[in-house]
Amino acid sequence: MNKRQFLLSLPALGLALAATGCADSRSHTHAVYMLVDTSGTYAQEAAKAQVIINYLLGSLQAGDSLAVARVQSRSFSEKDIVAKATFDTRPSQENAQKRAFRERIDSTFRLVPGSKYTDITGGLIQGSEFLNETGAGNKTIIVFSDMQEELDKVTQRDFPINLKGIRVIAVNVVKLKTDNVDPRKYMGRLEAWQKRVENAGAREWRVINNLDRLDAILARG
């Protein structure tokens, strides 16, 4: 709150207090579900994922929620959630929770077992479930992956998914060797994901490859 807002809020405060019980019923909290791809060669990028998680820990505020999950051969499972927390509304407790969260992430990512397949869709469904349960006003799924989905023959993911009101942000979408041969594959892959995510009712689809621009991740709507 800057000085102008402070001065403007003085007369508004009277009205706000007069209307006791008229507190803003909308939730202004932020919930973030981060999917970290640990399949194949992408597992090497885990250190970058930790940078993003640290940024989120530093930026999320009291009352916000954060969950970090791995993308494995089948990701539609609570077992894939590495760490999750809804930060306490008291700042002192919030800091302690964040420290514990970071330690948990550090210990988990120290030894990341690579998976054979990459089930991004399953992770998105699991993420949307988690985010809807938090009841947060701003919901974001961060997909830390090359967005190359690979499923085994048994796993079924070719059905419409529901991501209504959720922002989906693909981070660090690295180019594969085949993309280098034919860049249209990379573009096509991203376009296909955008179409799928938007059809699922997502509020926004965004790709961030420059890790210096992480502030765009938590742009509150």
């Binding site: 709150m1 807002q5 809020s9 003085l10 508004a12 405060l13 706000a16 207090l17 507190a23 803003d24 909308r26 202004h28 909290t29 505020q61 009291a62 009352g63 509304t89 008291r90 700042p91 002192s92 919030e94």
Partner: peptide
């Protein structure tokens, strides 16, 4: 915010803790 919590909002930019301070 340590007393009244930092998660409650009166408006999108005005927290309950800020109102309590005021």
């Amino acid at each position: 915010s340590e007393m009244v919590g930092a998660g409650d909002y009166i408006s999108s930019t005005l927290r309950t803790s800020e109102v309590a301070a005021l």
